[in-house]
Design a protein around this nucleic acid. Structure first.
Length: 596
RNA sequence: GGCCCCGUGGUGUAGCGGCCAACAUGCCUCCUUGUCAAGGAGGAGAGCGCGGGUUCGAGUCCCGUCGGGGCCGCCA
């Protein structure tokens, strides 16, 4: 080894010890007759002092060293002279007095500062990711990622779960996200698909009798990227035979609690995790992944406004739309400009506009008078209507009612966005709270207007709730699934379901999805066949591991917790992926590039 | 597929129709023995992503294009 100690581990207990360190020049402070170098390695930073008398050779090395040079330093750990301790550094009570040093490798001047504070363009960071990852925060994120993975493996191993690998080269499926395809050299015109998740394999493992499976699995989806979505990502995938909803939710709750206690003792979280139904979540928050750290709950006012004089609302209601909205406490004083901004937010999300009512004046709502209601459209609304809405929304004088009228889907999307916008603007979301919750009872199916057919909300193996089975033929849209999501602070951390283990029910669901026996056999024949050989009832869940890590690292973008993420346009600037291939490679794969 | 923001020395920004494109930081040289974003003095370094247009004149306005980012759609 070229080093005896790590820079970051040195402390007062090492005083007097001779050490050999190796690391990078984090910062160099040249006082002419005395040079300080902050030496950084994987574990941290320590100050090295170079005296021309104590180590003339070492001093010459320090004189020539520059940022990011790789140095080996021999020296003695010493207590810093009184008054020169650095409380900002974990090793700040000591320093290493260099007696010898050599340059292990010089370095070009880095394109950006290796420092947490420098705000560098994403492209540059990714192109020089090895420098970006040297920054303490990024470095720490990758370490935390590893520790979380280990903690999860230990937790599940203790509970009898077995980590089993599943193939990366698998078969394309018609349902779900766009597949990444890998052409087969041996079979002309045929393709492997990279797994969107190990879904089918893990269910087959249940049929194989392993009962408790998990995997920290790489997954691939060829869809557009977001802050919380990469084409290549990692799932904590889990499947459990003979388990029911409560077993899986309890297990996941226990797991998250143990991780939070261990990794983020500074945060609060609810116990037990609240569970709300999909319907309730949509009604109260307009989304299936609500941020429960703050209120601003949504309300429906359609019934109150059934006889409204306001033409815009009347028309929306006549067309089957809803008038929904929320109350912004203390918002009555909002400026025209602020309300304009809120209007922009909802318009960007598809709403036609935003109607506001400021409740002015003093006293209870009973005494609310026409003059107390300030609104651009006040003249179309009676005081009674406004009072009723205010009562339902729990509003008081001094508050602001904000209304959107549209198809439920659009109104919810707009109000969810408005709610998050307001929370961000007003700083309502406490960063020291993990507001975990489970959203349950998702609908099984969703009607697609464009394609004119039903789609699985989760995936085709999700079991319907037993009490809703009679609706399967009569009113498929109302059938609820035995599906659940884990949500935290507005992030969908994961989801899963109890699966169908009965071949006949599976075929009914396939039929509803427009898959006849032939097509079903073509795509899922292996599953159907496996289920004929004694499939145990089973269920599972998959958590977005990158999102979990980001949550624990206090990052709002999963790229910050991935070593080598991709850009928004799915490229990898360091290697240049995706790259071109030779004609010979194409020929072997039986492919030809079509000129557009 | 749609909407929005950004693109100026190595890095981060300012400049928003007209003197040699400014500031900070980094870099280089010199000075400096207790700093820790060390300090002081001096210096080099960009013609404003790319292409076209408007104009007497364009980082500055317009169109296109490329790249980065945010959002909607998409993501079983």
């Amino acid at each position: 080894m070229l080093k005896s100690h790590a820079c970051g581990e040195l402390g007062t207990e090492h005083i007097g010890r001779e050490v050999v360190l190796a690391g990078w020049v984090h910062r160099r402070r040249d006082h002419g007759g005395l040079i300080f170098i902050d030496l950084r390695d994987h574990d941290g930073i320590v100050q090295v002092v170079f005296h021309p008398q104590e180590g003339p050779e070492a001093f010459r090395v320090a004189d020539a060293a520059r940022s990011e040079y790789v140095l080996q330093v021999r020296g003695t750990v010493a207590r810093r002279p009184a008054g020169t301790e650095n409380p900002n550094l974990p090793t700040g009570e000591v320093e290493v007095r260099a007696t010898g040093a050599r340059v292990l490798n010089a370095a070009r001047t880095p394109p950006f500062y290796v420092d947490d504070d420098s705000d560098v363009e994403e492209l540059l960071r990714l192109k020089y990711r090895y420098l970006d990852l040297r920054r303490p925060r990024m470095h720490r994120n990758i370490v935390v990622r590893h520790r979380l993975a280990k903690a999860i493996r230990d937790f599940l191993t203790e509970r009898g779960f077995l980590e089993i690998e599943t193939p990366i080269l698998t078969v394309p499926t018609p349902e779900g996200a766009r597949d990444f395809l890998v052409p087969s050299r041996i079979h002309a015109g045929r393709f492997y698909a990279l797994p969107q998740s190990p879904q089918q394999y893990k269910q087959i493992l249940m049929v194989a009798g392993f009962e408790r499976y998990f995997q920290i699995a790489r997954c691939f989806r060829d869809e557009d990227l977001r802050a919380d979505r990469q084409p290549e990502f990692t799932q904590l995938d889990l499947e459990w035979s003979f388990a029911e909803e409560d077993d899986i939710l309890s297990l996941i709750e226990e797991l998250m609690v143990s991780l939070a206690r261990c990794f983020r003792p500074d945060v609060k979280f609810p116990s037990p995790f609240p569970r709300l139904t999909y319907e309730e979540s949509m009604e109260r928050y307009g989304t299936d992944k609500p941020d429960l750290r703050y209120g601003l709950e949504l309300h429906t006012f359609s019934d109150i406004l059934a006889g409204t004089q306001f033409g815009v609302f009347r028309q929306v209601l006549a067309e089957g739309g809803e008038v929904r909205g929320l109350c912004l406490p203390g918002g009555a004083e909002a400026s025209r400009r602020q309300i304009d901004e809120m209007t922009e937010v909802v318009k960007h999300l598809g709403a036609k506009g935003l109607v506001s009512f400021a409740l002015m004046g003093e006293g209870g709502l009973d005494s609310l008078a026409e003059d107390d209601v300030r609104s651009p459209v006040a003249r179309y609304f009676s005081v009674e209507e406004v009072r009723h809405m205010a009562l339902r929304a729990g509003a008081r004088r001094g508050d602001l009612l904000l209304l959107v009228a549209d198809r439920p889907k659009v109104a919810n999307r707009a109000l969810d966005g408005l709610r998050r916008y307001l929370a961000r603007r007003l700083g309502l979301a406490d960063p020291k709270t993990f507001s975990f919750c489970f959203v349950v009872d998702f609908p099984l199916l969703e009607w697609d207007e464009e394609d004119g057919r039903w789609y699985s909300v989760n995936h085709p193996f999700t079991a319907p709730k037993a009490e809703d089975l009679p609706l399967l033929d009569s009113d498929p849209g109302r059938v609820r699934a035995r599906a659940y999501d884990l949500v935290c602070n507005g992030w969908e951390l994961g989801g899963g379901s109890i699966r169908i283990h009965d071949r006949e029910l599976q075929e009914r669901v396939f039929r509803l999805l427009g898959l006849g026996p032939e097509e079903a056999r073509a795509s899922f024949g292996h599953m159907l066949e496996a289920f004929e050989f004694g499939a145990p009832p089973h269920g599972g869940i998959a958590l977005g591991f990158d999102r979990v890590v980001a949550l624990f690292c206090d990052e709002d973008d999963i790229r910050e917790v991935m070593a080598f993420p991709k850009t928004k346009s799915a490229t990898e600037p360091m290697t240049g992926a995706p790259g071109p291939v030779t004609d010979e490679q194409l020929r072997e794969l039986h492919l030809r590039i079509r000129e557009e």
